[in-house]
């Protein structure tokens, strides 16, 4: 069989894009480590850029890519369940910070939502585009559910969630250093609330305590956004 035929045969199965997804991430991770852990050298961002360029260059539709990548995507579920472990290890720290967590949840979640809607409105966004900004700080399944409920575009909201996460992961360390917030409980929790999963991944890279609090922040904002966001956004746009 000629090499081109083998290649065409392989591209129809999941192996090629699954392998490339992992290799692209390893390249990103190696660059991240080579940079001495610089936040701007984000492994997710590098992998996304590499793979997107490859899809574009080879004229591969996303659906074909996802046939392979879905195996990696699926692991998000068990990984979320795994967050129970850092939560359990840090349980004594967590139990003593109930009030700070509630305060940070309300502040982080409401400020994220209101400034997103406010800036969008000031810049002339209307209708579905504006509404889709509302739930974007929450983890994707929640944000998508809220978007459906308030008449926003679920696919746009899903994209905004990912972009928020990448943005958060890149800016979080210099931002908290500038603010002078050094406590890893505060840094992690706020990151989970405002930058959900990708923010939590970043927090886990930095410190296990930050990772544990990020996981709780993400979970608490999931519940809060699911329950409160439809009412808050409905009231704002009534």
């Amino acid at each position: 069989m000629p090499v081109t035929d083998i290649w065409i045969y392989l591209l129809e199965g999941p192996l090629v894009w699954l392998t490339l997804t992992i290799l692209a991430y390893l390249v990103g991770d190696a660059l991240f480590k080579a940079s001495g852990g610089k936040t701007t050298v984000n492994p997710v961002l590098i992998a996304i850029i590499l793979l997107s360029g490859l899809l574009l260059a080879t004229d591969t539709p996303y659906g074909t890519y996802f046939v392979g990548a879905q195996f990696v995507h699926f692991l998000l579920g068990p990984a979320t369940v795994s967050l129970a472990l850092p939560l359990y290890w840090n349980r004594h720290l967590i139990l003593r910070t109930a009030l700070p967590m509630v305060a940070a949840l309300l502040a982080g979640s409401l400020v994220s939502m209101l400034t997103a809607l406010g800036v969008g409105w000031l810049l002339g966004l209307q209708g579905v585009s504006l509404l889709s900004l509302g739930p974007k700080a929450a983890t994707s399944p929640i944000a998508i559910g809220v978007a459906e409920k308030i008449g926003a575009a679920p696919s746009l909201t899903a994209a905004l969630v990912i972009l928020t996460g990448i943005l958060g992961a890149v800016i979080v360390t210099p931002l908290f250093n500038a603010l002078g917030v050094k406590d890893y409980r505060a840094r992690g929790f706020a990151t989970g609330v405002s930058a959900s999963g990708i923010g939590t991944a970043r927090a886990l890279q930095v410190h296990p305590t930050a990772g544990a609090f990020a996981g709780i922040g993400m979970g608490m904002n999931a519940v809060f956004t699911a329950l409160a966001a439809p009412y808050i956004i409905g009231w704002l746009f009534a």
Partner: peptide, 27 residues
């Protein structure tokens, strides 16, 4: 696109700051 991205940048910075400062303030 540009308006959405601007809203994302401002709200992510603001949300992260508000959350971290509220947590540290309560501590």
């Amino acid at each position: 696109g540009p308006a959405l991205l601007a809203a994302l940048v401002v709200s992510t910075v603001a949300g992260l700051s508000a959350g971290a400062l509220a947590f540290a303030g309560m501590l």
